[in-house]
């Protein structure tokens, strides 16, 4: 299970979708990093991910890992955000049958996991279908 420091460190990304943009080639990284994988640039400007996108691919998890058992079945997808960045997250508030490649979604703030009954609550983003 995730510990406090490890969870806390990623708060800017999980709560506010903070990313970085390579100042030389413009590629956006989420999470931010030190070297651009496209042009090896080392200078970045801070940016924020787009809040809407479309489903690139998805699955419905029936056999869940520890800590997610109560939620199964649940959908997880890779979403291409409107700024072109792809991220992985759960897709909630929908029946798995409704989902398809291309479904428009938006980010919403949700509880993502918890460290047992007494541990830290871990928040972050999930996707919900938008009309």
């Amino acid at each position: 299970m995730i510990g406090s420091a490890r969870y806390w460190r990623e708060i800017p990304q999980r709560y506010r979708y903070e990313a970085s943009k390579c100042t030389s080639c413009g590629k956006v990284f989420f999470p931010p990093r030190l070297v651009c994988s496209k042009c090896q640039g080392r200078e970045f400007a801070q940016t924020v991910l787009a809040k809407t996108g479309t489903v690139e691919t998805f699955t419905v998890i029936r056999v869940a890992p520890s800590g997610f058992g109560d939620e199964a079945p649940y959908a997880v997808g890779i979403v291409k955000l409107d700024d072109g960045v792809k991220i992985t997250a759960q897709i909630v508030d929908c029946e798995p049958e409704e989902l398809e490649v291309g479904t428009p979604v938006r980010l919403e703030f949700r509880r993502v996991q918890q460290d047992g009954e007494s541990g830290v609550l871990c928040y972050g983003y999930k996707f919900v279908p938008r009309v």
Binding site: E108, R110, L121
Partner: peptide, 16 residues
Amino acid sequence: PTPDQDTITMSVEAAR
């Protein structure tokens, strides 16, 4: 509320 919704998550969405 679904198990992933609580006072904090709903507060964030309403506040946004």
